[in-house]
Write a protein that binds this DNA or RNA. Structure first.
Length: 252
DNA sequence: AATCCCTACAACCGCCCTTAC
DNA sequence: CGTAAGGGCGGTTGTAGGGAT
C-alpha cells in the first residue's frame, strides 16, 4: 500500500514563492513557531502551499540565520574534507558550517566545487600546457583519456568495488576502455554536464553519470587530501558512515 | 536581434526513518 | 507489534539570466 500524499497536490500552489507568501510564512512562524506540524501549518497560516514546501522554504531561505553564497576558502576546505569522509551526506556537512543549509551546500558542490576539484587535479597532475590543452572538464562529453592520467585502473577498480559503488557503470566503462586502450590508466571524465540540460543532451543513462562522478570525485579527493585514497584507507572506511541501509543488509 | 547553450539555484519528488497511536 | 502520518534527506528538475554564436 502506498503512502497517502501529504497534501492535495492538485489544489496547492507550486513553483516560486512570492514575497507576500514569504512574509505570511515568516510572520506566522515568528509569532507561533512551527507548532511541530508542518502539514497543518499552511492551513493555520492561511497559505495555499504544501506543508513540505513551507518547511523547505523556511529552512532553506527564510530562517534568520541563513547565509547565501559567498563561500569562503575555509568553507570549501571543510566541504571537501567532509565529502571525502562522508560522501553526499549534505545535512551532516551542513551541520559543520554555521548558517549553511544542506541544499545550499549541495548546489554549491554540484555547480562549483566539483569543477574546482577537477581543475585542481588537472593542474597538479598534468605536464601539458593548460593554455594549449583544454582541461579534461572541457573536453567532449564522452569519457576521455589523456597522457596526464593520474589514476590507475587498479585504484579505480578499487573504488568500484568499494562501498561507494551502487552501479556497475563505472566498471563496465573501465572494461570498455581497457579493451581499446594501450595504456592501463584512466584520467578525468567530463563534469561540465552537471546541469539537467546537458545531462539530457548527452543521453547518459539516468542516474549512472552521477554515480560515476561521485566515485570519481572521491578518487580525486583521495589524492588531493593525501591519506584517504590509499588502498589501506579505502579498506578501513567504517561502513556505517558510507553504506546505505540496503547495502549493509546485502553485505551480510 | 534572435537563438542557443550553460550556469546557478530554488523548488519539488520520492523514499526512508521516526514516532505516535 | 503493526500501521499510518509527519519529518528529514538526497536526488532531480525547472527555469531565469547571462554569455556566446
Amino acid at each position: 500500500m502506498g503512502r497517502a500524499p501529504c497534501c492535495d497536490k492538485a489544489n496547492v500552489k507550486r513553483g516560486p514563492w512570492l514575497p507576500e507568501e514569504d512574509a505570511v510564512l515568516r510572520s506566522y512562524i515568528e509569532k507561533h513557531g512551527t507548532g511541530g506540524n508542518w502539514i497543518a501549518l499552511p492551513l493555520k497560516a492561511g497559505l495555499n502551499r504544501c506543508g513540505k514546501s513551507c518547511r523547505l522554504r523556511w529552512l532553506n531561505y527564510l530562517r534568520p540565520d541563513i547565509k547565501h553564497g559567498g563561500f569562503t576558502e575555509e568553507e570549501d576546505n571543510v566541504i571537501f574534507s567532509l565529502y571525502s569522509k562522508l560522501g553526499s551526506r549534505w545535512s551532516i556537512i551542513a551541520s559543520h558550517l554555521r548558517g549553511r543549509t544542506d541544499n545550499d551546500i549541495k548546489n554549491y558542490w554540484n555547480t562549483k566545487l566539483k569543477k574546482k576539484l577537477i581543475m585542481s587535479s588537472y593542474n597538479t597532475t598534468t605536464t601539458m600546457d593548460p593554455s594549449k590543452t583544454p582541461p579534461p572538464a572541457l573536453l567532449p562529453a564522452t569519457a576521455v583519456k589523456s597522457e596526464s592520467s593520474s589514476h590507475t585502473t587498479d585504484s579505480i577498480s578499487k573504488l568500484c568495488s568499494s562501498p561507494f559503488s551502487s552501479s556497475n557503470y563505472f566498471s563496465s566503462l573501465i572494461n570498455d576502455q581497457e579493451g581499446s586502450m594501450s595504456s592501463s590508466t584512466i584520467t578525468a571524465y567530463d563534469v561540465s554536464g552537471s546541469s539537467s540540460n546537458s545531462r539530457r543532451d548527452r543521453n547518459w543513462p539516468a542516474g549512472d553519470e552521477d554515480t560515476l562522478l561521485s566515485e570519481f570525485d572521491l578518487g580525486l579527493l583521495s589524492e588531493m587530501l593525501g591519506d584517504y585514497g590509499s588502498e589501506e584507507m579505502l579498506g578501513e572506511v567504517p561502513p556505517p558512515l558510507l553504506w546505505t541501509a540496503s547495502e549493509l543488509m546485502y553485505s551480510q
